[in-house]
Design a protein around this nucleic acid. Structure first.
Length: 615
DNA sequence: GCCGTTTTCGGCCCGACTGTTTTCAGTCG
């Protein structure tokens, strides 16, 4: 039983209640409590078993006495009577039906009660037999929509990783901006916030000819199918662009891969939504479609407390007597008090400008000024890179030249250690030769420092893959877990704490080994790992590859709050991997990282001094 | 089911779009 299990239990309760048609506010309450738990790093199962559990749990936002009781029951017994009662009433096969595009709990409820549908198979049968078409409010058009939704679900259209979504969004935005009538075009949504995976892409545009822009959008070459299309909004499915080493590997081994993708059509499909707004409302729309649900609710509530109301057109005076949407009111009442830029909106509500990445309702409303979060341009060193000596594609000199071209003052060569035989990990004598080769490369290039390092495996019991004598010869040691990534939480914690406490280790690389949407990785007590890292001056890495983004955002935030130092590294294998820095920085920003706590931003002297302290 | 410098009861973010309707329910973001 972990926090994730508590989240799953609350989500399941909420879904069952929806299907039964229970009070929507109870559904929302359970869902919000689940969101809260997702953002917590403390082990709530341990809290639930411990003293004063109810009191401690109800201190969390959105958790009251009733949900606290369920959490305690789950923590202590692993079961929840209410959940079991719900399970007895509702067929479990109905839950996946809630994911069908364009259909929700009310529809599923009708299918279940009126047509005997209990899962995907019986739904398909009911569609084929005409049973669905005979239900009230189910015309042929609705049935066609349902068939399309079933088709799409079968193809596994789901979430997409940040790096894949970003590339697609950049292309869409560039094509829209190239049109004469388009004044502004930006991607918003969870992708702009930098979530590690996204369920769709939102594009906000202001245009002098909305209808033409919307038409152009729905006929872009990447469009696979059009879901809906109007003058002010349109939704399509697009095919992602492929190409990286991870994607090729994925296409080969993913049994759920879309067959059309395997034929070279590109990557997975993704829903892309377009909104066209008048230019004077662009900022309001960006705020509205960027903030998380919780951020937007908080913002709205704050406005209401001040006597205003916020929608996607701007901030307006709240008028309870008039139920016309404020932007449609006549005269001065219909004019927004702030709407043009995002900064205008926040300033009007007496808030500093809040960077997109932290619009999650995790404390940003208490900020007195805009924090100076880390930016890509602050990064001046790469401390995790591979060469042809192990599994990289560049020589030492090629790597150093590429890093220098990026404006870096330092590049660390950190090839794999001996246990990584499949990645041509270096045996001790090969590593000693490699160190000599790095020293000699340094003599051939000026303007950048080449550090001799290693990405040393953290073995399952926490020991390292080289002995201390050899590690001491290296300028920088990145210690990373690569195998036994399914070991239990207690062992994982001991493993990482031991590595972070090692006097010769500078950085813990991709600490959990998770792969976004693919592998959970280790699930250690992260607070214990952070405490060990802090105590021994060891940096925790944010691996910038969009497949990893490990540490993840919530762990970064906990590490920063605890006073830990952070490294952001591209884990370079090919020159293009340097371009992934933006994703690492975005993840850092989500964790409220300022430049001073990130070792990669430090001037050469300070960085080299920090490394030498461990020698 | 949660929550409170206008509330311990009565609210809970809100508008657009779609399809099925003849005034609105459901879904989405």
């Amino acid at each position: 039983m972990t926090n994730a299990d508590l989240v799953a239990a609350l989500e399941t309760i909420a879904r069952y209640m929806e299907l039964l048609g229970e009070d929507g506010f109870r559904v929302i309450a359970h869902t919000r409590a689940a969101r809260t738990i997702e953002g917590v790093n403390d082990d709530l199962v341990a809290v639930g078993k411990g003293p004063d559990a109810a009191k401690k749990l109800t201190e969390l936002k959105g958790i009251g006495p009733a949900i606290a009781k369920k959490l305690i029951e789950l923590s202590t017994t692993g079961k929840c009577a209410e959940l079991e009662l719900l399970q007895a009433q509702v067929p479990v096969g109905l839950i996946p039906l809630l994911q069908l595009q364009g259909f929700g709990p009310k529809s599923v409820h009708v299918w279940w009660k009126e047509a005997g549908v209990t899962d995907i198979a019986s739904l398909k049968a009911a569609v084929e037999s005409g049973k669905i078409a005979s239900l009230p409010r189910h015309s042929q058009k609705t049935v066609d929509k349902l068939k399309a939704a079933l088709e799409s679900a079968a193809q596994g259209a789901g979430r997409m990783r940040l790096g894949q979504a970003r590339r697609l969004a950049d292309r869409v935005v560039a094509q829209l901006r190239s049109r004469a009538e388009v004044l502004h075009a930006e991607a918003a949504g969870s992708m702009r916030r930098g979530r590690d995976s996204v369920g769709d892409i939102d594009i906000i545009v202001s245009s002098s000819d909305p209808a033409a822009t919307s038409r152009a959008f729905t006929t872009l070459p990447m469009v696979q199918s059009v879901i809906s299309a109007g003058d002010t909004r349109a939704s399509v499915k697009m095919v992602a662009v492929g190409g990286s080493r991870w994607e090729k590997e994925e296409a080969a081994d993913d049994e759920h891969a879309d067959p059309s993708a395997a034929k070279g059509a590109g990557g997975p499909t993704m829903q892309v939504d377009l909104r066209v707004v008048p230019q004077e409302h662009f900022g309001a729309a960006m705020v509205y479609f960027t903030g998380s649900k919780d951020h937007n609710i908080h913002l709205r509530q704050r406005a209401l407390d001040m006597g205003y109301t916020v929608n996607d057109y701007g901030v307006y005076v709240e008028d309870k007597a008039d139920d016309t949407p404020p932007h449609k009111r006549k005269g001065a009442a219909g004019r927004p008090l702030a709407s043009k830029t995002e900064a205008d909106i926040y300033a009007f509500l007496k808030l500093p400008y809040i960077p997109p990445e932290i619009r999650e309702d995790r404390g940003e409303f208490e900020l007195k000024e805009t924090p100076r979060l880390i930016e890509v341009a602050d990064v001046k060193a790469e401390l995790h890179a591979h060469t042809t000596a192990s599994d990289g594609g560049m020589s030492i000199l090629e790597l150093a030249t590429a890093a220098k071209a990026r404006g870096f003052h330092t590049i660390a060569v950190t090839d794999h250690s001996q246990s990584q035989f499949q990645a041509r990990g270096l045996k001790p004598d090969r590593l000693r030769d490699h160190i000599a080769a790095i020293r000699s490369a340094q003599e051939q290039i000026k303007g950048i420092t080449i550090l001799a390092g290693s990405e040393v495996d953290i073995l399952p019991d926490g020991r390292l893959d080289y002995d201390d004598e050899l590690l001491a010869e290296l300028d920088v040691v990145v210690a990373s877990p690569h195998n036994n990534l399914t070991q239990n939480s207690v062992d994982a914690t001991a493993r990482l704490v031991k590595a972070a406490s090692h006097p010769l280790v500078h950085i813990i690389g991709h600490p959990t080994g998770r792969l976004v949407l693919r592998r959970k990785g280790l699930e250690p007590d992260m607070n214990a790992v952070i405490a060990a890292a802090k105590a021994h001056g060891t940096a925790l890495e944010i691996n910038a590859h969009w497949m990893r983004l490990d540490l993840r955002d919530t762990h970064v935030r906990a590490a920063v709050d605890a006073g830990c130092v952070i490294a952001i590294d591209c884990d370079v294998h090919a020159e293009s991997d340097f371009d992934n820095l933006r994703y690492g920085v975005t993840t850092a920003r989500r964790g409220w990282v300022t430049p001073d706590v990130c070792v990669n931003t430090w001037p050469a002297e300070k960085l080299h001094g920090w490394l030498k302290k461990k020698r």
